[in-house]
Design a binder for these strands. Structure first.
Lengths: 216, 216, 216, 216
DNA sequence: TATGAATGAGATTTCATTCAT
DNA sequence: CATGAATGAAATCTCATTCAT
């Protein structure tokens, strides 16, 4: 019910613009206030400072993304590590997978500005390493997946570096999407292709490792 | 020996440290000078300003990388688009490819700090979009490759978005390497795996497209 | 009363002093702020920078002077180019002339500091050639006057150089007044003498030209 | 016999250029040295500093001008205060007068740059009030002239302010010449006209004063 | 003669932040 | 709620000058 004061709204809007144009560091609170038609004092009534203003834009979308991601990957883990998955993957599972990927992309495009800021304009703010956080999150799921698969196929191992890199690529894929494709529908299409490639890569990597291990 | 004044050397060293720690924008010339044990005036004797100081560290390594990259990919283009490549790829050609990839990685690790700055700490400087430059360079090669392959197999096409993404991933791979693996030998190993994955992905993507086209 | 903040007033006062003592270029904003008892930041709240601070002191007086000058000379032009003026000049017209000259001198002395700055201390600021502007303004009137008189007495011509010089002298007369006579009443007296001399010189110059032309 | 080192010569030439372009204050010794192709150290071998470098350009021409001026006006004084001058002035005396005025103008145009600097670009240097010095010099002559004439015609007085103004105008005439007429021959022509006007004004001013005194 | 490195003090400007009202 | 004035610290940069070599 917080009546979301008009001033606060204007401030947030101007802030988005300024942060997007100049990045966190170069952004000037003065300009934001001027653009919003209020004084600096007003800004400090609603926000604690520059950092807090930035957070007000990006925190909630990021938290939601984190939740979504956790869910998405915990699903993936159960699916991909299900007995017999490796023989038949990319058949029925794809639907489930895609639908969740779509949810992620959808969330990101619903909060386009926020994620743009978060993923490409946060240098200097306390969110500057939020990418790392996401990567870590994903990597954790990857690790679990790998562990479960290894439990079934003992020769199946992915080295740590590659695992981390895959996680990174996963996040980078979102960033790339955001910065290169403004249309959500097309974005979902691209993401599908990319995820296919990633999943296949992941599988093959494991198989190769297997073969390598086998040939020793 | 008067060619490389001791002071200039100290200045460059301190600058590297400060830029690495705080990034281009937040870096303070005062601190750099203080750390080097000279006055700010001294800095301005050797460099034209902050931008020039940064450039003094990163420009030459970047230029060399660009050259190396051009050569590397022009080789790749001729190899990969050679008749019959798709049937037998990843056999003898790999050696050639690896050796050049090694050269790239070697160059990057020889100038570790410079590339760290360039690829992750340049925001605010005129090098802030050097990543885009590299991506573009690589993409150009990718396009040529794709065109040549398309000339041989008319159904073979990669959509523009994926091509750009592959180029980006290629650069991101270097960045990831730099930020996560400080040992050059291991880095070369990782890079080999990644490049394999990338090349395979590239090929499959084309084959898939072919199949898709065929099924229409 | 909040229209003219005390601090701003103090700043302007200190600025006047500093600019007068050291001229625009040598003047130090630091000293101005120190003298006004505020920090440099305060100055930048009220003014955009050094140039703007200077302008805040001199612009409005200069603009007014320009208006006054235009009016003064447009009156002069109509009077001096009236039929029969040359035979009876310096009789009743002088009053009109003097009264306006008085207005000019009055305006200048009302803004003593501003004109002092403008005419003798503006080197380095964007007002540094304001003297030229005034000369040009006056010269334009002179030219019109000369043209009208020439229309009545076809042989009547003043060469360009002398016309420009007269205009310059006119402005120089004001500068000289300002720098050498601080008492406005006395200044008005001096100005009367000088203007008489200038008008007479102007007339004679024309008569001489006439004679010269006649003797050809 | 001082072999006038080539370096010194180059330095002076570059200094003239820089001072003319930017004025004393804005002029940069660094730029002067760079333009001359030497280092700052060299400059400090030949000159004591910025002030001394400027003086090296302007001092000697100024001293000579002072001498010339003294002579010119001491001649004028004797001529103009000769018994019966006022009845017959502007006849034979004109020749004498013109010849000396020509000498002055010639000297100034022979040292065009130096006087340009001295009269219009010296703000900030110790020569910044050299104009006042010249005015004072001339005024002294004027005063003597006026005194001598007053001795002959007791009613003949020029008030102090006007005397000073005339002196100023005299110098201003030179400045104006320098800044508006680069051709010496034409300059001499202009100067003739101006001096005629000045002398006539001077005489008439005295006559008016006489009349004014008489009418009391 | 001249170099080239270095000084050190000063310049203007920017900015997030605070606080009395 | 919001203003608007003011802070204070830091930023980059410029310059005449000095001095060991």
């Amino acid at each position: 019910m917080k009546s979301d004061s008009e001033t606060k709204e204007k401030l947030l809007k101007s802030a988005k613009k300024e942060f997007l144009e100049n990045g966190y560091m170069k952004a000037s609170l003065r300009k934001i206030c001027a653009d919003a038609g209020v004084t600096t004092g007003a800004l400090y009534f609603f926000f604690e400072g520059k950092e807090d203003l930035f957070a007000a834009i990006v925190k909630s979308p990021l938290d939601t993304l984190t939740e979504l991601l956790k869910k998405h990957f915990s699903d993936d883990v159960s699916v991909m590590s299900a007995p017999g998955f490796m023989e038949k993957f990319s058949i029925e599972t794809d639907k489930e997978h895609d639908s969740l990927g779509t949810t992620l992309v959808h969330h990101i495009y619903q909060n386009y500005d926020a994620f743009m800021l978060l993923l490409t304009k946060a240098q200097g703010s306390k969110f500057e390493s939020c990418v790392d956080g996401l990567v870590e999150l994903i990597e954790k799921s990857y690790k679990e997946m790998a562990d479960r698969m290894a439990a079934q196929n003992p020769d199946c191992q992915v080295n740590e570096y590659m695992r981390h890199w895959f996680a990174h690529m996963n996040v980078d894929a979102f960033i790339h999407l955001l910065t290169h494709e403004s249309d959500e529908q097309k974005a979902i299409g691209h993401m599908g292709q990319i995820m296919d490639y990633l999943v296949k890569g992941w599988m093959e990597m494991i198989l190769i490792q297997e073969k390598e291990s086998a040939s020793k």
